[in-house]
Structure formats: C-alpha cells, structure tokens
C-alpha cells in the first residue's frame, strides 16, 4: 500500500489489539479507582486485626480433655481465617463493582468499542481481579500467621508450622476468597447493575444458608452446595478432634466434607455463572 495508489484515503498505522493489552488495560482500570484500594485495605486490616485479636483470646484453658495436635492446628487455622466469611462479602462486593460498575458508568461502551470481540474483556477482568485478590488475601494471611502463632503460644497453644495441612487450609481460605470473588464477578456481569449484583451476591452468601436451615431434615444437606458453606469446608482443617468440642466426634452427616470437595463445589459455581455471563456478554447489546 503505497501512498501513490490512493493519496486521498488515509491509511491507519499498524498495531494490533491483543490479549496482553486487554489485560494491561483492565489492570490500569482496576487500580485507578478508589473502590479497589478501599476494599483491599478493609480486607487486609480486618484479617490481620481480628485474626490477632481472636488469637490472643483463644486457649484450651478449662477444657476437660487434653487437646491433640489436630485440635491445636484446627484452632490455629480458625484463628487466622476467622474473618474469611466477612472477607468474602468484601471481595464479593468488589467483584460485582469491577464489572457492573462499567455498565453503571457507561465505561463498558468505550471498553467494547476498543475490544469488540468482547470475551477477552471478561477474561482479562476476571484474571486481574482474581490475581489481585489472591495476592492481597495471601498477604493478609501471611501477615496474620506469625502474629497469630506468637499470640496463641502465650496461651500455651503450640502451633506446628511444619504441618502441610495447616498451610493447605490457609491456601483454601485464599482460594475461597478468590472463588467467591469470581462468583460475585459473574453475577455482576449477568445483572449489569451494582445494586442488583450486590443484592444477588449477598442473598447467595448470607441469606441462602439461613434459608436452607428451615428446610426439612435431609433436604438441608443441600446447604453444603451453597458457596459460603462449601467455602467453609474448603478452608477447614481436616481433623479427628475438633477444638470446638474436644469430646464430641467430628463425623458429620454431610456428604461434602473434604476441603477439595468444597473447592470443587465453588469451582462449579464459578464455571456455570462465568459461562452464563460470557454467553450473555456475547449476545446482549452493550
């Protein structure tokens, strides 16, 4: 294409739309609004602050039985992840805002004009949000662990840090936050309004577990399929003797008991909702 063939027609410069660029774009957008920083600051502060507070007040003092190491590790995991259910709400709210906020402000129109193939937007957004959430919650736990361990030690609770299950449970907590965030993100993409997305997310995380407790026995087992319950399973310490009641057997009637099962349940939620959000993003007018 030389300029002599068609001097009157403007030839644009080269340069492609590419996935890396879309991810970079989403990262710029993600970090350039205050809501992101607020949400993560609250998550970090609460995790560390309340984790430390709870660690300083937990002990086996006054309990009739002798705690096994299992029960101690179980308590130690609880102390660090005590705020995770609340953290899930913060991360969920942010997940909704990240995508639904674009519709509310109209930014989605410049985004889709720049990336008319659309799906990369959803992937890039989800990736940026998931990685950031992973990093922040991992940092939050990493800061809480030494505090928690030393505070528990003062109460004669000797946590063993060479126990892989302890770290796996904390990793489960990180995974729970990331996956709940992605569930909320997908809901936000489906609802396309911040208010609507938040309502649905909070109903799913807060109201649904309560509602299922009113179901007849047997049917209430479906509650373990809810994200917040599956999340609690995911970050639980697999134990023979729980610190909550040293005398009671830990066997439960629930059919999803292993952390990985809880994790899979959450992944299934993400897969279904994210796919739905992707399909609708493709089909709907922006």
């Amino acid at each position: 294409m030389s300029s002599t063939t068609a001097p009157s027609v403007f030839v644009p410069a080269e340069g492609d739309l590419y996935l890396g660029g879309v991810i970079r774009s989403e990262w710029i957008k993600f970090r350039s609004v205050r809501s992101t920083w607020w949400a993560y600051a609250v998550l970090l502060t609460l995790t560390v602050g309340i984790g430390a507070q709870v660690s300083s007040s937990l002990s086996f003092e006054g309990m009739p039985d002798v705690p096994t190491q299992d029960a101690i590790q179980d308590m130690a995991v609880y102390a660090v992840t005590v705020t995770t259910d609340f953290g899930a709400l913060i991360v969920g709210a942010l997940g909704v805002v990240v995508i639904a906020g674009e519709y509310g402000t109209g930014t989605i129109r410049s985004t889709i004009t720049a990336v008319p193939t659309r799906l990369p937007i959803l992937f890039a957004k989800a990736l940026v949000f998931a990685v950031a959430t992973f990093v922040v919650s991992a940092v939050a736990f990493a800061v809480t662990v030494p505090l928690s361990v030393s505070l528990l030690a003062r109460n004669d609770v000797a946590v063993r840090l060479d126990d892989p299950q302890y770290w796996l449970a904390l990793l489960g907590g990180v995974g729970y936050l990331v996956l709940v965030g992605l569930i909320a993100f997908s809901v936000g993409g489906l609802m396309r309004t911040t208010a609507g997305g938040m309502s649905v997310t909070f109903v799913l995380l807060l109201v649904a577990p309560i509602a299922t407790s009113f179901l007849p026995t047997g049917a209430e087992n479906v509650a373990v399929l809810l994200p917040s319950i599956a999340g609690d399973v995911l970050l639980s310490y697999p134990t023979e003797q729980s610190w909550v009641d040293l005398a009671a057997p830990t066997a439960s009637s629930d059919w999803i008991t292993e952390p990985w099962q809880g994790g899979l349940t959450l992944v299934a939620w993400v897969a279904v909702l994210f796919t739905a959000a992707a399909v609708l993003l493709e089909q709907r007018d922006a």
């Binding site: 340069g15 660029g21 774009s25 710029i28 957008k29 350039s32």
Partner: peptide, 13 residues
C-alpha cells in the same frame, strides 16, 4: 489520563 491509558493499552498505544 487513566481512562485514556486504559483504552490505549488494548492496542499497544
């Protein structure tokens, strides 16, 4: 500026 940077990033601008 951030809005423009975000849109530009998609195309290596």
């Amino acid at each position: 500026r951030h809005h423009l940077l975000a849109v530009a990033a998609t195309h290596r601008i």
